[in-house]
């Protein structure tokens, strides 16, 4: 349990920013103000926040189409996120990627992969390159429970274990592979059980508790950084929304969301810091309100931001225009 006030407020700021951002994206999508797919991260804030705040600025990250939480935890400016969701020049990818690819390469975020499990071997390779080049950088690859049936999962664990890649595989087990329940599809019973046969050290953690996630991440990251060995963290969590905004979610049992909301990562954080008097409700409310305003301002700014110039359609296909 961390007691440093600034650290606590930093965690709270990121989690509230993510939650407010995702709530706003959800309502804007419902109101037809956003085009394309939006994959909501609400409910999983403690994982992105707990892990990414333990990384160094030069560490690598691969994310998925459900990337808003990872990017905001990595401190991608909110206006760069909203700009990307609206396809504007101010977007973190200049509007070319949209919501599913809204990550910042300049912050070591290699991708928000649109294909399930796509980032795992790439993260292993980035980790290997760091080691080969005498750097002590690590890579973290985020994925969901559905991704563990892809060949890429198994092949990258074997690769990482065999070649000593300091990569941390982070499974955000949110109980659904798209719309299919984990208790149906996960024959192994857990994701950690799938890692161990490959020689990948694996730990399970409560993904609704940012402190537990931070502690687990600290250990695994240090372990990877100093031994060069891969590890896997399975963070148990829940996706409050659907696979994407507009998904009717009829496959979820009626009481399930409420049961998990009772363990909400923001509520849990509030209780954990106010009960021992580390922070007051006033402290938390102030930051939460600032996050709300920041998100609102960022969406407002993006709506006024310029569209990309038509010439941009053909730039960056290659390093140099041929």
């Amino acid at each position: 349990m961390i007691e440093d006030r600034d650290t606590l407020l930093g965690l709270w700021q990121r989690m509230t920013r993510i939650r407010r951002f995702e709530e706003r994206a959800s309502t804007d999508k419902e109101a037809d103000l956003l085009e394309g797919y939006i994959h909501n991260y609400s409910g999983q804030e403690a994982i992105a926040t707990g892990i990414i705040t333990q990384l160094r600025a030069d560490d690598w990250i691969t994310s998925t189409y459900r990337n808003h939480g990872h990017s905001i935890a990595r401190d991608v400016p909110l206006e760069a996120m909203t700009g990307e969701l609206l396809g504007r020049t101010t977007g973190v990818c200049g509007g070319k990627g949209g919501s599913m690819h809204a990550v910042d390469q300049d912050l070591g975020m290699i991708g928000g992969m649109g294909i399930v499990a796509g980032g795992m071997p790439i993260a292993a390779g980035a980790a290997l390159a760091a080691r080969r080049r005498g750097q002590d950088r690590v890579a973290v690859t985020f994925f969901g429970d559905g991704a563990v049936h892809q060949g890429a999962f198994h092949e990258s664990m074997t690769f990482a274990a065999l070649f000593n890649c300091p990569v941390i595989f982070v499974c955000e087990n949110n109980l659904y592979a798209e719309t299919t329940a984990v208790d149906y599809h996960l024959i192994a019973g857990s994701v950690i059980a799938m890692a161990e046969p490959y020689g990948v050290h694996a730990t399970q953690v409560d993904g609704m508790d940012v402190f537990a996630v931070r502690d687990a991440a600290e250990q695994l990251i240090a372990r990877a950084r100093y031994t060069g060995r891969p590890a896997l963290l399975e963070a148990m969590t829940y996706r409050y929304g659907g696979q994407y905004e507009g998904d009717t979610q009829t496959y979820k049992p009626p009481q399930e969301v409420a049961q998990w909301r009772a363990r909400d990562p923001l509520l849990t954080f509030r209780r954990r810091v106010t009960e021992p008097g580390l922070l007051t409700h006033g402290d938390l409310d102030e930051v939460a309100e600032r996050s709300r305003v920041e998100v609102a301002d960022a969406f407002a700014a993006a709506a006024l931001a310029p569209w990309p110039d038509p010439s941009v359609l053909l730039t960056d296909v290659y390093t140099e225009i041929s």
């Binding site: 592979a177 798209e178 719309t179 599809h185 009829t250 496959y251």
Partner: peptide
């Protein structure tokens, strides 16, 4: 295919989930 019906594994506990998708 992936989620071509939906609600797999829940047919007994929660029949409404079946074929929801």
């Amino acid at each position: 295919g992936e989620d071509i019906a939906g609600g797999a594994g829940r047919d007994e506990a929660y029949p409404e989930a079946a074929d929801a998708w």
